[in-house]
């Protein structure tokens, strides 16, 4: 019964014709060293993945620790470019830790440590020559709780550009309008760009945060439960937005809401207790999960 509900949800949005799948850990050599990992990356294009579009983020045997406790165990997956990839799983399963590893937001947590590799366009984000500031300009992030700066709407969107050194007012104006338009917020705020961002509604604030992330022209946008604090109407706006954004950006979204994952994503990864249990086309995960645990979770038997 649940499956048919999901079927109807899916049919209102998108249908992928071929559901290729591969399981976590499959075809992924357990390697520990950077050089070997890089080689793996080159040879990693197994037939399994050829049906996917080009891989943007390639995660290789990634472990993550907070102090002595290991919270991610050997995660390996390929995140395709210009698609929406959803990370689902019960609370505490490590999906947030994982998404925050992609732009190294966990760096600010003392005692946090990672092994393995996350490659973006072939470059290891944890490699020695990766500049974290540069990385974060390429990999934008939207947080669960909208976090506009206590500045004007204009200054919020301009922030990333200004710290990047842009001073030209005409250029700034142009990018700010474009970013707000892309975030479907321009028409609501164009007459009060210099009013405080804190006066916006929750949903508007979250779209402002998306506009702010888009302004610096990232290639990847990470979204950590971007709609979990919003009402259904604001949520549907954010979801529409995500759907449109994937034409230009690679999107990774953490969500607790399975209908949301089903509606917006092309690929879905199911996490459990710090392990990647299953990763496949969203259709396959919801209609025809291979793993018992995945099936139990997506049909609501636990979690």
């Amino acid at each position: 019964m649940t499956a048919s509900v999901l079927q109807s949800i899916r049919s209102t949005t998108l249908e992928s014709p071929s559901p290729p799948r591969f399981l976590a850990g499959e075809k992924v050599p357990k390697a520990d060293e950077g050089a070997e990992l890089a080689q793996d990356f080159v040879s990693a294009r197994t037939p399994n993945e050829q049906t996917m579009t080009e891989s943007k983020i390639s995660v290789r045997n990634f472990d993550f620790f907070y102090g002595a406790s290991k919270v991610l165990h050997g995660i390996s997956l390929e995140i395709p470019a210009q698609k929406v990839t959803a990370l689902i799983g019960p609370s505490g399963c490590g999906k947030s830790t994982f998404i925050r590893s992609i732009n190294r937001m966990n760096d600010i947590i003392p005692e946090a440590r990672a092994t393995g590799a996350i490659m973006i366009d072939g470059q290891d984000v944890y490699g020695g020559d990766t500049d974290v500031v540069e990385l974060r300009r390429k990999v934008g992030m939207v947080f669960q709780k909208s976090n506009p700066f206590p500045k004007s709407i204009y200054e919020n969107v301009a922030y990333g550009l200004k710290i990047g050194g842009m001073r030209n007012k005409r250029q700034l104006d142009e990018i700010i309008e474009r970013s707000l338009t892309r975030a479907a917020l321009w028409h609501e705020v164009k007459d009060r760009l210099h009013a405080s961002a804190m006066a916006l509604s929750g949903g508007q604030q979250q779209r402002l945060c998306i506009a702010r992330a888009l302004a610096v022209d990232p290639e990847i946008v990470l979204m950590d439960e971007p709609a979990s604090a919003l009402d259904p109407l604001a949520t549907s706006k954010i979801e529409e937005l995500i759907y449109e954004l994937k034409d230009n950006y690679t999107i990774v979204i953490v969500t607790h809401n399975m209908q949301q994952a089903a509606r917006v994503s092309d690929r879905t990864a199911f996490f459990m207790l710090g392990k990647l249990i299953e990763y496949a086309d969203t259709n396959a995960i919801f209609m025809n999960p291979k793993e018992k645990m995945t099936e139990d979770y997506v049909t609501g038997r636990f979690g």
Partner: peptide, 11 residues
Amino acid sequence: GLREGALALGA
């Protein structure tokens, strides 16, 4: 969250 927001924008 404000700190994270700024850092995530490359500050």
